[in-house]
Design a protein around this nucleic acid. Structure first.
Lengths: 359, 359
DNA sequence: TTGAAAGCGTTACCAG
DNA sequence: CTGGTAACGCTTTCAA
C-alpha cells in the first residue's frame, strides 16, 4: 500500500519504468508489446503497471506510429434504418479487426460531408467509409486519396474515384420492380425519391446526383422503355427528403387528373409515409394503388397489406465496405475494387393488377 | 507555382512558418487561433498555410491541450431504433458544440462495455455518454469518474454513481399502461423484456439489472398490486433478447392453459416480434389479445390495428444527455444532475376489453 | 507583438 | 536484451 493507485493525473510509461526499476524504453517495450525483453523484466514491469493502474495514452501512441486504430464513417442519416443497419455491419467488422469507429452524420449535405471529412482526417483516422451525398461533388474525397488514407464508398459509387466501392444491384432491382408492375397492367408508375434537383423537377437521370438512386431510376426508365411507355419522366418525383415533402408529393399526385396506379418508394422512410398518406386518402392497397418500397424495413411485413419490397443486403453492404477498408489498412494494394451485392424482390400483397381506367 | 501542394507527407506548422518567414510559435498562434499577432503577419501565415494546403494534426493538438474534442458514446445496440434515434440527438448537440462522437456498441454485454470504455478513455475522449448494460456492474464507470472525465448516463441510471443522468419516466409510464389494461378487465398481463436473469426466471425486480426496465417492471407490478392481482410475477418474461427468443416466449404462453389476455412489450423490437407471432397464431387484436409496446417506433402506427405505445422522448433523451455532458466539458461543476423526461401514452386500437374467460 | 525552447506520452533508432 | 535519446506536431510559458 504505497499510495492510492487512483491518481487523477495519468500514469505514464516513465512512472511505470521508475517503479519497476528499468529504463523507459524497456518499460515501453513490454507495455507496447513490441521488441524483446526477458521474462523477468517483463513480469516486473507488468506488476508495476497494474500496481500503478497504468493506462496507455492512445493519442501519444498514434502520434508516433501514425496509426490511430480508428476508421471514420460518414453517412447521410444515422436515424434512417438503412444506415443504422449498415453502420452496425461496419462496426462489427471493425471491432473484430481492432478498429474503432468515429461516426459522422452529413444530413445528405455536401458542405457538412466536407466538414466531417476534414475533421476526421485531422483526427488522423486510418481510413474512411463514406456514403457520398452527391457523386458530382467529390473533390474532398479525392483529398482523402491524396492524403494516402484508404477510402471505401458505401452504397454509392463515384465514377471519378478509383476506390473500393460496395453497392447493391440497384439498377437490376428497379428493373424487376417496374417490369413486375407493368406486367400487372400498370402504366402510370410514380417513382418517389428523396434526391432533389435544382428546380425540383426531374428530366433525365443525369439530374440525380446520388449514384444509387440514379441507377435505380435508370433501371426503372429502362423497363418503361421496354414496354414503350411514354412520358415516364414526369412520373419521377424528386425532393421527398422529409415526411412532409413526401406527403405533399403524394397528395399532389392524387389531386391531379392523372393519378398513378402504382408508386415505387426509393427508400423505406418514403415508403412508410406513402403508406400513411394513401391510408389517409382512403385508398385500398392494392386495389386502388400498388406500392413497392426499397429496403426491407421492419414495418413493411406487418402492415395490411404487407408491402412488396426490394430486399437490400444492408448489413452485408456495411460489412463488405469495412472488410475492403480493413484489407487496405493491412497493406493490400491495387486498383479500387467494386463489389455489387444482389438484391431480392420480396413480393407481398401491396401489388396487384392496375385498376381499370374508369377514372 | 513553387511545387505541387499535394504532398503526401503532411505539412506542419514548422513548414508554414518557414514559408511565411516567421517563427513556429507565431505561425502556431494564427493557425491555432490563440494569442495575438499583427494583422500583417496573420495574413502572411494564412497565405502560406493555404498555399501549402496545411491541415492541422488534431492528434498533436490534443496531446498538448489534453482535450480531444471528442465524446465517446457506448450504447447497447445501434441497430435498435431507440438507440439510433438517441444517438442522433447526441450527435446533433455534440456537433453544434464542436465535438465529434466515437460510437461503440456493447451488445448489452458488460465485458464489451468495459472494453469499449477502456479504449475510449485510452483515446482520451473528453467525456462519455453510456447506457450501462447492468446497473450492478459499474466499477468501470467509476473509473471514468476517477479519471476526471465527465460521464453522463443515458436512459439508465445507476444509484451508486453520482453522475448526470437522463432517463424517461418509465415507472409512471408502466403504471399507466397496466392501469389502462386492468381498467379494461385484464387480469393476466404479460410483461416481456429482453433483460435476462441467471436462471431465465423472474422473481423480483431486484433480479433485473437494467435500470430502466426495472423501473418499468416496478411500475407495472405496483399497478397490479393496486388491483390486488395475484401471482403477477410469473407473468413477467425475461430473456427476449433476440426475435427467436421472443417468439419462443410468446408461443409458449399461448400453448399453456393459462393464456395472457394482454402483453406489454418492453421495447419496440420485442413489440414487433410479438405482433408478428400473434398474427401467425391467428389471434385478432384486440379481441383475443391486447398489446402495448414501449417506444413509438414507426411501424406501430401503420399496422392493423395500430399499436398502443408509450411514447418516449428518445431524441430528447440523447439531446439532454449530450447537453449535460457538454455543460460539464465547459466547466460546470457540482453534484450529478438527474433529468427525468415525461412519457406519453398513445392509445391506439390494439387495446380492448379483456376477452370473457370462456377459454 | 514575436521568438526560443520546454514539454505532452509514446515509439523508434542506435549503441552498448 | 537493455538503455539513452531523438523524434512526432502541436501548445505554452518565458523573455525579449
Amino acid at each position: 500500500m504505497e499510495q492510492s493507485p487512483a491518481r487523477s493525473s495519468s500514469v505514464t510509461v516513465a512512472d511505470v519504468a521508475r517503479e519497476a526499476g528499468v529504463s523507459k524504453a524497456t518499460a515501453a517495450r513490454v507495455l507496447g508489446g513490441y521488441g524483446t525483453v526477458s521474462a523477468k523484466v517483463r513480469d516486473a514491469v507488468k506488476a508495476a503497471a497494474s500496481a500503478l493502474d497504468y493506462r496507455p495514452n492512445e493519442l501519444a501512441r498514434s502520434m508516433t506510429t501514425g496509426r490511430s486504430g480508428t476508421i471514420g464513417v460518414v453517412v447521410g442519416d444515422i436515424e434512417n434504418p438503412f444506415f443504422s443497419l449498415a453502420v452496425r455491419g461496419i462496426t462489427d467488422v471493425a471491432r473484430l479487426a481492432g478498429f474503432n469507429v468515429i461516426l459522422s452524420n452529413s444530413g445528405e449535405d455536401v458542405a457538412a460531408e466536407k466538414a466531417a471529412i476534414r475533421t476526421l482526417v485531422a483526427k488522423r483516422v486510418d481510413g474512411l467509409i463514406v456514403s457520398p451525398a452527391k457523386e458530382g461533388d467529390v473533390e474532398h474525397l479525392k483529398d482523402i486519396e491524396r492524403s494516402g488514407r484508404p477510402l471505401a464508398l458505401l452504397d454509392r459509387s463515384a465514377r471519378s474515384l478509383n476506390v473500393d466501392t460496395v453497392i447493391a444491384d440497384d439498377r437490376h432491382a428497379a428493373e424487376s420492380v417496374t417490369r413486375l408492375l407493368i406486367a400487372q397492367g400498370h402504366r402510370r408508375i410514380a417513382y418517389v425519391t428523396a434526391c432533389d434537383t435544382a428546380d425540383h423537377v426531374f428530366r433525365t437521370p443525369e439530374d440525380i446526383y446520388t449514384d444509387s438512386v440514379r441507377r435505380r431510376i435508370e433501371g426503372h426508365l429502362g423497363a418503361c422503355r421496354e414496354a414503350s411507355l411514354e412520358g415516364v419522366e414526369q412520373w419521377v418525383c424528386v425532393g421527398a427528403n422529409r415526411p412532409e415533402a413526401t406527403r405533399q408529393i403524394v397528395m399532389g399526385m392524387f389531386r391531379s387528373t392523372e393519378r398513378p396506379t402504382a408508386i415505387i418508394a426509393s427508400d423505406s422512410v418514403i415508403g412508410l409515409e406513402v403508406f400513411r398518406v394513401t391510408r389517409e386518402l382512403g385508398l385500398i392497397l392494392p386495389d386502388d394503388l400498388s406500392l413497392v418500397s426499397f429496403h426491407d424495413a421492419d414495418w413493411t411485413s406487418v402492415t395490411s397489406p404487407p408491402v412488396t419490397v426490394v430486399q437490400q443486403p444492408v448489413y452485408q453492404l456495411g460489412e463488405a465496405a469495412a472488410r475492403l477498408l480493413v484489407g487496405r489498412l493491412k497493406g493490400e494494394t491495387g486498383e479500387g475494387r467494386r463489389v455489387v451485392l444482389d438484391t431480392r424482390l420480396i413480393e407481398r400483397a401491396s401489388v396487384g393488377p392496375a385498376p381499370s381506367p374508369a377514372s
